[in-house]
Amino acid sequence: MKLSVADLKRCVGCQLCMFACSRRSGEGGLINSCIEVRSQGGISKGFTIVVCAACGDPPCAKVCPTGALIVRDKGGVRLDSAKCIGCGNCKNACIIDAVFWNEDENKPEICIHCGVCAKYCPLDVLAYH
């Protein structure tokens, strides 16, 4: 199963996906969110969604000095938190800015392609197949 942006033009910028992603921790707020909705340079121009593209050969994993990012079979990575030293290389390597940062823990927030964000998108902007 993989997450994708099915129709960006339907996006109204409500951020429900961001809250859904962060809520996996059981708490409110946005700190754990691995997805972000931004305006395309001002609200009136519409929105863009920043989320992990599940690269087959992920640049974020290549630059991890401790092997904390493990490449998944279907693309993308998963984080072995115990190995992560919080250097931020992965964040810098992702050219679409889809590696988010948890300031409280000083560790990356990595999309696991669970699809919970798509489930809470009221307008079917996101798809999970």
Binding site: S25, G28, G29, S33, E103
Partner: peptide
């Protein structure tokens, strides 16, 4: 960007879904 604690995670999830569905 931060997290907001709740005292009862299950009650929070359930009520969230109730409000979301109604909305």
């Amino acid at each position: 960007k931060r997290s907001i604690p709740v005292t009862d995670r299950k009650a929070f999830r359930n009520l969230y879904d109730e409000v979301y569905k109604a909305a």
